[in-house]
Amino acid sequence: MNRPELVCPAGTPAMLRAAADAGADAIYCGFQNATNARNFAGLNFTPNQLQDAVAYAHARGAKVLLAINSFATAGRYDLWQKAADCGAACGVDAFIVADIGVAAYIAERHAGRRLHLSVQAAASSPEAINFYCREFGVRRAVLPRILTLAEIHQLKTEIDCEIETFIFGNHGLMVEGRCSLTNYAVGISTNMDGACSPASEVHYDRNTAGVVTARLGSHVIDRFAPTEQAGYPTICKGRYCTSPRDEPYYAFEEPISLNLMEMLPALIGAGVDALKIEGRQRSRAYVSSVVTSFRRAIDAVVAGRKPELVDLVALTEGQKQTQGAFATKKWR
């Protein structure tokens, strides 16, 4: 049985150290600008921090993957080029990209460096993935969270690169890299500015009855009764009043997290090369807990033992978890 890489998130240098110490094989991170899809306030790395982080990770046998996975826009393409050059100078092991211009630039200027195809590219067919492999030398594709295990198994036999799948965190059912909901609401693009529901546009108000109203820009996207769990303030996970329903409901998707711990033996058996934990915007506590749990579980599966299933529901969005489309297309 192959031993897949455990790929873990880091939004800060301390998170990266926590991930490396907890047993991550690879850690992904981004710079403090629009070149990555978690361009959130107070998050991410400066070039100097990245350089130190690479040294820390390498000393512990872990790789560092640099996410340059937003889409470069006309007039500021140099920002993405500089991010790639800087990442190469810092010694990152691979770049995670979505934009074909960025992929072409790295393939040409930093030919020895691995290229991974971001989930932001939303490539889910053998034809699409093989195009990236052929044209840019992509070595690994991060699959959208819309494929069943059987489809992943089949895909593995039809593509020319490694497969990485998400195993924990954001459920992410939107066609990633194509979602314009935040842009529509507040004029900031998830895909080109790297910020989905930026905190500067999110507001919570609590009334005297304890009901909390969540707004993105001027749009009310949810209301939580005092005893209801909450989710991220994103439009896709809001509740809306739409005909013919009388009550507000989750019109797009529910606040719920993906958790594939029980499915690890099947995923590894299907030949998945890397298993990814989502959550650069979270914390050291999240990374330590989730990475430690999955490290033990993966090691157990690879050693032929039954993995201990750790309860991670306290860390999930909305305090709910699912196997999503990996188990069935009828997950809802």
Binding site: R284, A285, Y286, A314, L315, T316
Partner: peptide, 13 residues
């Protein structure tokens, strides 16, 4: 102190 995840505390209200 870095021992609780802020997002989780928000999710649980």
């Amino acid at each position: 102190d870095g021992r609780q995840d802020g997002d989780s505390l928000f999710f649980s209200r």
